[in-house]
Amino acid sequence: MNRIEDLRRVTDNTLHGLIADDSLKFRILQKVSSEQEPRRRFTFRTVTALCGALAALAVMVLALNTLQPVRPGGPGEINVFAAGGTGSENASLFRDGFDPGSVVSVELEGSSAVTDAEKCASLAAVLSGTAENADSGESSGQERLVLKLSDGTEFIFTAADPYLFDGDGQCWYCPEFFSSIKE
């Protein structure tokens, strides 16, 4: 009688013909090959998609950084500024300040237009120095105040003496400016 301790020898005899041959090895390599092909395709597609997304993102960032602000078309319209950019045209006049000396014309439509450099600088200095933020004010005025800078930038406000309304929808109280421009 065979004992369990003889299992190795017994198995070698009873399962002598059960061996892992070359056909099984071929099946294994074939399966590995077939599994790796879709994986390679998937990797290629994923990398391509990621590169595409990154390129699109780069184009968007580039575009946003070169956009110019959209100018208001008429009285009462607010200034719309695109994101990004480095020019002063992207800033609100009162929020970021500006150089009064760079103003080349100040025109209160229907009332007066000033193009004298000295007078323009003086008016701009009054505007930036005395205007106070106001909580309320009537925005029903039909006049436009247009400030042109030497670089071509324009700042447009809706005017209703003694208030100005800027592109951000802010209301500014500046009676000194209106007095000065009407002198």
Partner: peptide
Amino acid sequence: ECFPAPDMIGSLADQQTLSEAV
């Protein structure tokens, strides 16, 4: 089922019993 070597066929009764029992 056992897969014996050709020259072992007929002399494996005991060994086959052990394999089957396992």
